[in-house]
Computed example of a mutant assay.
Amino acid sequence: MKLLTYLHSGKENAGVLSKDGTSVFPFCSFGLPYNDMNSFIRDSGMSRLNELSQALESKTDGGVPFSEIKLLAPIPQPAQDVICLGVNFLAHAQESARYKKEVFEQDRAAAVYFSKRVDRAVATGDEIDGHFDIVDSLDYEAELAVVIGRDARDVSEQDVFSYILGYTVMNDVSARNLQTRHKQWYFGKSLDGFAPMGPWIVTEEEFDRPPVLSVQSRVNGEVRQNSTTGLFITSIESAVSELSQGMTLKAGTIISMGTPAGVGMGFDPPKFLKPGDVVECEVEKIGTLRNTIQ
């Protein structure tokens, strides 16, 4: 089941994509009083998924033609910073160390977590502001993002998937010069427009546990990243369980699971983004996030 946020007749709304992908049913057409994804997840979320899925099977009225809507990011304004995993693929960890001229830590024991501030998530089809007045090394990172569906605290690895609403695609856009200059990642990852997300959330029951999915990025049609979530260093189960120890992951929390090798800084010379470039980030069984650099 695909949950999405969209614009129709000048009004922002949230709902479910029909099985055949030709129409969108707002949550209100199922008798649910929500017109935004944050409210749906916070107040209802996982407890209504089975009901929604069953109702969708026979749903024929109350829909809006997909051709008449504009897709927005599934959660346009996350309630909290996005939690990100750094260097969660071995090959990306190696290319990152080369670029920064650091010693590669072969036996890193613990996950690297950082946060990404999101003013408003960028939808597929929209432009990414490159902030080229302060950025000279704009980069892309295709990632699988996990959306938590109910408050999670002290969750065991065995129970993690019962807390996951679903998955979406994220491009962890990064300003490498800011990231390197400040010796941490928050500023260089958090400029306005640096969180493209979408095209929708695909609910967790559509996937194996854990999901092993191809992750790919393309720039102007050239494949740059091509890997699989089966190569995560820190698994979804481990990350969610560990983060929930002593810290409550509120419903609606987004955890972006890290990017594979092939980012711009990994090439010699680097292949950073420039105005007019078209970046596509694709995760198997979810979809493609396509944006143009402004």
Score class of each variant (00 low, 15 high):
Thr22Ile: 00
Tyr140Thr: 10
Ala152Asn: 06
Met247Lys: 02
Gly149Ser: 09
Ala97Ile: 05
Gly262Ile: 08
Ser217Gly: 09
Gly62Pro: 06
Glu105Phe: 03
Asp151Ala: 03
Phe89Met: 08
Phe66Ala: 15
Ser47Thr: 00
Gln94Gly: 08
Lys101Ala: 13
Val82Gly: 11
Ile164Lys: 09
Ile233Ser: 04
Met197Cys: 01
Ser256Gly: 05
Gly130Glu: 14
Asp192Gly: 03
Ala109Met: 01
Gln94Tyr: 10
Ala251Glu: 10
Ser67Ala: 14
Phe232Ser: 00
Ile69Thr: 10
Tyr99His: 15
Ser217Arg: 13
Thr168Leu: 06
Val202Phe: 00
Ala152Lys: 09
Glu206Tyr: 11
Lys274Tyr: 13
Thr292Met: 07
Ile69Asn: 07
Asp81Lys: 05
Phe30Leu: 06
Pro199Tyr: 10
Gly193Lys: 12
Ser214Asn: 14
Asp154Lys: 00
Asp136Glu: 12
Ser214His: 12
Thr248Pro: 04
Asn220Tyr: 11
Gly63Tyr: 14
Leu289Ile: 02
Arg176Lys: 13
Phe272Leu: 12
Glu157Phe: 11
Ile254Lys: 11
Ser23Phe: 02
Glu280Asp: 04
Gly149Asp: 01
Leu17Lys: 07
Gln294His: 13
Ile201Phe: 10
Tyr6Gly: 05
Leu3Met: 06
Ala73Trp: 13
Pro78Tyr: 14
Tyr113Gly: 01
Met46Asp: 04
Gln77Ile: 08
Pro199Val: 00
Ala142Pro: 11
Gly230Thr: 01
Pro196Asn: 02
Thr203Asn: 03
Leu71Asp: 07
Gly264Lys: 09
Glu157Ser: 04
Glu141Ser: 11
Asp81His: 02
Val16Lys: 05
Lys250Arg: 07
Tyr140Phe: 15
Ser256Thr: 01
Ile254Phe: 15
Phe114Tyr: 15
Leu71Val: 03
Asn88Met: 11
Val16Phe: 07
Ala73Gln: 08
Glu282Val: 05
Ile83Ser: 13
Phe161Lys: 04
Pro269Ser: 01
Gln294Pro: 05
Ile255Arg: 13
Thr292Gln: 14
Lys183Ala: 09
Ser23Thr: 13
Glu102His: 11
Phe194Ser: 03
Val147Tyr: 14
Gly15Asn: 07
Pro196His: 08
Ala110Gln: 15
Met46Phe: 01
Val173Arg: 13
Pro269Cys: 00
Asp129Gly: 00
Glu127Val: 05
Val278Ile: 15
Leu49Ala: 01
Ala251Gly: 11
Leu231Gln: 14
Glu105Trp: 02
Glu284Pro: 06
Leu56Tyr: 11
Asp172Glu: 15
Glu206Asp: 09
Arg42Gln: 09
Ile164Gly: 02
Val263Tyr: 11
Asp136Gln: 14
Ile286Glu: 02
Gly86Trp: 14
Asp159Pro: 06
Arg290Asp: 07
Leu32Ser: 00
Thr124Arg: 07
Pro65Ile: 08
Asp119Glu: 13
Leu249Gly: 06
Tyr113Thr: 04
Gly193Val: 07
Gln158Lys: 07
Ser156Gly: 04
Lys285Ala: 10
Leu289Gly: 07
Leu165Ala: 03
Asp119Pro: 00
Asp20Phe: 03
Pro33Val: 04
